[in-house]
Simulated scan of single mutants.
Amino acid sequence: MNTEMMHSLVDRVIKIDRGGPESRVGKLLTVEEDYITLLNADEGIIYYNTQHIKSLTYNAKDQAEVDVEIPEDFDYIQAKDFKSILGKLTHRWVKINRGGPETLEGLMYIVSDTDDFITIVANEEIVRVSLFHIRNISYGVKIEKAKNDENNNQESGKEKSSKKEK
């Protein structure tokens, strides 16, 4: 995909792909050489390998917001290319390929410099995955959703209990 076009969508809510197990909606945080970084309300930071993105959708009329509040000191892994992102995720719990039969979750053990694969320890298995077949990857960083409804419910619950105490 054209990186110049994708740069115009940074800080906007977009949809990756039109549907299916890999499709996600989130805020586009960064566009790099061969990957993008998406902040999804449910799954946190997801890195998408751009060679596997079929489409990007941006609704110009209804500019949706992601239901998360991003703290000022929010930090996530960044690098110049997708392979470097994978290298920085070594020894972290990751999830590869969001949906479908190729979903894999486990500890990223090795990113091979000489070969084009990564090694994941999942349960009692050691799995080697070709870099070419990694469509997206995420790791444990998540942001709390905006909890306006929960806070309102808790406050009204406190009011009820204080009325009962009187």
Rank of each mutant, 00 (worst) to 15 (best):
R92W: 10
V31Y: 02
K163H: 06
I126M: 07
D81S: 04
K158M: 00
N136M: 06
K15R: 10
S161I: 02
N152P: 02
R98K: 13
S55C: 01
R128H: 03
T119C: 11
G99V: 13
T50C: 11
G87P: 13
V25E: 11
K88C: 05
Y35P: 12
E43I: 02
K95G: 12
V68W: 12
D116F: 12
E4I: 05
D149S: 05
Q63W: 15
G106I: 01
D17E: 01
E65Y: 08
V68I: 06
D34L: 05
S84V: 13
T3M: 01
R98D: 09
W93L: 04
M1L: 08
D67M: 10
N148A: 14
T50G: 01
L104W: 13
Y48M: 00
G19T: 09
S112K: 14
I70C: 09
A79I: 02
K88N: 14
Y47V: 11
I120D: 10
L39N: 10
W93I: 07
V121C: 04
D67S: 01
V121H: 02
E125A: 04
R18Q: 06
A79V: 02
Y76F: 07
S156K: 15
H91V: 04
N123W: 04
Y48T: 00
E165S: 03
N97C: 01
M6C: 09
A79M: 08
E155R: 05
L86G: 04
K145L: 03
L86F: 06
L38A: 09
R18T: 03
T57M: 11
S156D: 15
M5E: 15
R98V: 13
R12Y: 02
R24M: 03
Y47G: 07
N49A: 07
I120A: 11
N136A: 12
Y76N: 12
I77Q: 04
P101A: 12
N153I: 05
V66E: 07
L9V: 13
G26Q: 03
S23W: 01
T103R: 12
V25D: 07
N59Y: 09
K95P: 13
V25P: 07
Q78F: 06
T119E: 13
V129E: 06
Y47I: 14
M1P: 14
K163R: 03
